[in-house]
Design a protein around this nucleic acid. Sequence first.
DNA 1: TATTGTTATACTCTATAACTATA
DNA 2: TATAGTTATAGAGTATAACAATA
Lengths: 155, 155
Amino acid sequence: MGMPKPPSDFPGVDIAAADLLTACGQLVRRLRAETNNQELSWSQMAVLARLESAGPMSIADMARAESVKPQSMGVTLSVMEDEGLLERRPHPTDGRQFLFALTVAGVEARRRVRAAKQTWLAGAVATLTADEQRDLLTAAAVIRRLADSSTRDTQ
Amino acid sequence: MGMPKPPSDFPGVDIAAADLLTACGQLVRRLRAETNNQELSWSQMAVLARLESAGPMSIADMARAESVKPQSMGVTLSVMEDEGLLERRPHPTDGRQFLFALTVAGVEARRRVRAAKQTWLAGAVATLTADEQRDLLTAAAVIRRLADSSTRDTQ
DNA sequence: TATTGTTATACTCTATAACTATA
DNA sequence: TATAGTTATAGAGTATAACAATA
């Protein structure tokens, strides 16, 4: 399993972890409820965002980056390919792999849906104080580092 | 005064919202991958946590609290009832409602699974600096307020 | 052998729709 | 009427298992 097992050196660690868990869970459910019936799902948005920032990627690499199994990512990418959001090209040197890239339609869909997806959350964030908004920005970076922290199972 | 609809008054709002979205999404996927095959699902843990802190609740109230449809929550609670984690009692004054409460088995399961669920995240959090851990705690409270912020659809 | 990708199957969570019972 | 709950059905997202092709 993960992590060299740091035995809860002080209580703050467990408290922060537990709080973060419940808070993120609640936010995710609320977001799902508030942004229902959209053109693109959250998973699809994550794929578009990553391909846009990281460039063309293979199924296996995308699966690792998004912490899902290659079979799951394969389904997601194939669906998006069928919908014309992604384009599949053979890997230049590895005959097993394919590289997926955004199509024009994919870029446009992402731009179009992005604002709609954020509408509710941006409104909610706007009601916070400037300090709280800064806290969120700081925390988002930390959370992203956590999600990406290197204890990868080989899967 | 009541801030007449803040249409992204300054870029920070949209940036914070977008960052929080992608960061939470990534963390949720990573957590799912790292804490697979556990005795209780995340949704079930959320139910147990809420009932433990808020006391017995009806299906409709739980659904509102967790931002899901009553039908969805009804299924979740019925399954947990069948598993002996929850107990259903008739509402004292309203003949339509039922009040769900933790059983002893539910309390024990929550305590047992809680540590296991947190193991990976607590380990990851432990690698952060003390400042970053404080940032997370602060942010968790803000995130919870966001998830609970009062723009409720009537559903 | 190890890795990449595909296909088939199943499970969890949630949604919508249609219904009954109670307020 | 409005609300609470139930049941049936469907969909998205992911997992496991078994397989073929390539490295």
